[in-house]
Amino acid sequence: MYRLALRIVGSRGDAEDAVQDVFLTAWRRLGQLNDDGAFLGWLYRTTTNQCLNVLRKRKPHADTELDEQESAAPRTRPERAVEVNAQLDALQAALRGLTPEQRACWVLREVHGRSYDEIAEAIGTTQQSVRGRLARARAQLAEVMAPWR
C-alpha cells in the first residue's frame, strides 16, 4: 500500500500519512470488513481514495517540491546502465504530468496488476472510463518516452 500511495501522491511524507490513515480506518471498521477476499479490494480502494483526496487538497504550486522529493529516492543497483535510470526518472516525471485519476488508473493497472473491474471500483467510476483514462495515460507516457527509442 505504501508503494501504491507513493506512486500516486509522489511524496514520501504524504504517502506515509495516507497509509497510516488507511490502516487506522481499517482498525475502526474491523467489524464491517467481513471477508478476506474483499479486504484487499477495500485496501486498494481506500488507499487510492485517500491519495486522490490528498492531491485534491494540495495547492498547485506544490508540484516543484515533488520533483525534489522523488529524485531523492536512492538508486540501489549501481551496475544498471545509466540510461535505465534516466528512463525510470523520465517515466516518474511523466507520471507527475498526468492527472491524479489517470495516474491512479495507470499505477493500479501497470504496477499493481489490478483488473479493470477493481480499478473502476477503487476510483468510483465505470470500466469504460478506466479504459479511457488508461489509454490517455499510456499515450501521454509513450510520448514522453519517445526520445529513448
Binding site: Y2, R3, L6, R7, R12, E16, V19, Q20, A73, T76, V84, Q87, L88, A90, L91, Q92, E110, V111, R138, L141, A142, E143, M145, A146, W148, R149
Partner: peptide, 26 residues
C-alpha cells in the same frame, strides 16, 4: 508509436522491480 510503447513497457518493468521500502518506523 510501437517503439515508444516498448520503451515505456521496459521502464514500467523497472518501476515494478524497483524496491521501495516504507520507512522502518511506519
Amino acid at each position: 508509436v510501437r517503439e515508444s510503447l516498448l520503451v515505456l513497457r521496459a521502464a514500467t518493468d523497472e518501476l515494478v522491480r524497483e524496491e521501495v521500502e516504507p520507512p522502518f518506523d511506519l
